[in-house]
């Protein structure tokens, strides 16, 4: 049930007008620019130290079903983020053309 709901909500997400969405709503293979991270001081700081700072480009490599973890590519290396962590990171999706 939950899974289906999430899919419909994803479809309902317009991507063209540069809306800010949660990292968990990116599609696999899609890129986005980090706008900000919400959460406790400790978490936000730790994310920043792992390279997740505002303005950085993130590629969502893989996400596991049922609110599983996400694998992202950031600053030339791979990171695994738990779903809870990833849902606090917000990005502005980039258009597919900029994939290079």
């Amino acid at each position: 049930m939950r899974f289906r709901n999430r899919r419909t909500s994803e479809r309902g997400n317009p991507r063209s007008n540069g809306e800010v969405i949660s990292l968990t709503s990116l599609f696999e293979g899609e890129r986005g620019v980090l706008t900000n991270a919400f959460g406790g001081f400790g978490l936000v700081r730790r994310l920043a130290e792992m390279g997740l700072t505002p303005g950085v480009e993130i590629k969502l490599v893989r996400k596991c079903p049922f609110r599983g973890p996400l694998q992202i590519e950031v600053r030339g290396s791979m990171l695994a983020l738990g779903y809870g962590v990833a849902s606090k990171v917000f990005v502005k999706p980039l258009k597919a053309e900029s994939n290079g």
Partner: peptide, 12 residues
Amino acid sequence: GEPVGLIMEMPS
């Protein structure tokens, strides 16, 4: 205490 989420580098 609060649970800590996963933030882990995945080396090649």
